[in-house]
Computed example of a mutant assay.
Amino acid sequence: MSLPRLFSSRYLGVAARGMAMGAADVVPGVSGGTIAFITGIYQELLDSLSRIGPHCLTLLRRQGIAATWQYINGSFLLALFAGVLISIFSLARLIGYLLHDYPIVVWAFFFGLVLASAVPVLRGIPRWSLSVVLFLLVGIATAVLISELRPGQIPATPLTLFLSGSLAICAMILPGISGAFILLLIGIYPRVLDAVHQLQLFNLVCFAAGAATGLLLFSRLLSWLMHRYIARTLAFLAGILLGSLKIIWPWKLPLTGVVDAGDKLAPLMSNTSPSTFAAQTGDKAYLGAAVTAAIVAAALVLLVDAFGTARRKGEPGVPPQ
């Protein structure tokens, strides 16, 4: 892949989607997989990742770098993950500032985004049946049950860091479930942050190795499911999205036993109404700003989906849905 082609509008668009995924992943409670889904690259991401494996070494030896790069859709993956990294390192401070100073508005924006994201997912289900509805309900129940879990505490050993990385990356691929939120639940999120801030290279390598392993294995499973059981898989993913709304409800109060939860632990706080929030905390509920942010986010999702649908209809060999 030549550099001019790599910087074409196609891959610049992929990089922009990656930046949006990175911005979402900064917020515990919001999944980058959600962004991948609503921007129309979810299936391509899963298929590309599922092609990476030991057999690539054989292909590399027999046909060379160019053929292997094309086989794994390397330019797509490079552009996407470059966008994710750029976003994490450039937007993390801004997202952190907004989350600290305007948490309700930020959570409301993502609430609207996730809620609207369920629309194209549900519309993409090719056929409905009793089993599809059952998978939708199982998805909702799964996300709600995860939201009811309370933070644990595990030591940061090489094994736990490896397993935590695997678990977090699996959650990140699923639309609606945040990898950072899972790390919060098992109590290792602060230790991962410490490893990043203090450049604890060995701990970071253990965590990254687990994330890479989980990414390659879980993406292969999801890709297989999407190709063979698309209706049930989409229904389950839509259920995960809808159930995760409980996690990112904007107005929250601290849980009993969780002292000074702060913005990073917001998904682990209990939901309440805007009026109860204002009465018990003495802070503004920012209802108008929150509703506006949610509407803007939902409108953005639906516009992106409408644009993607119109473009797909215009492609040769793609029948209108």
Rank of each mutant, 00 (worst) to 15 (best):
L3T: 14
P4S: 12
L12G: 05
R17C: 12
A24S: 06
D25V: 13
V26H: 02
V27W: 03
T34G: 02
Q43W: 11
S50F: 10
S50R: 08
C56E: 04
R61W: 15
Y71F: 14
N73P: 03
S75D: 03
L77T: 13
L77Q: 08
F89E: 08
L91N: 05
R93H: 13
L98R: 08
V106E: 04
V114G: 02
L115Y: 07
V121A: 09
I125N: 03
R127Y: 10
W128V: 15
V132S: 06
L149F: 15
L149I: 15
I154C: 09
P158M: 03
L163T: 12
S166P: 06
A168N: 05
I173Q: 03
I173A: 10
I173C: 07
I186S: 00
Y189P: 01
F202A: 14
C206R: 03
A208P: 02
A208W: 04
G210P: 02
L216V: 14
L217M: 06
S219V: 11
R220Q: 02
L241F: 13
W249P: 05
D260F: 13
D260S: 15
K264Y: 10
A266Q: 04
L268W: 05
A289L: 13
T292K: 07
A299W: 09
V304F: 15
F307E: 01
R312M: 12
P320N: 05
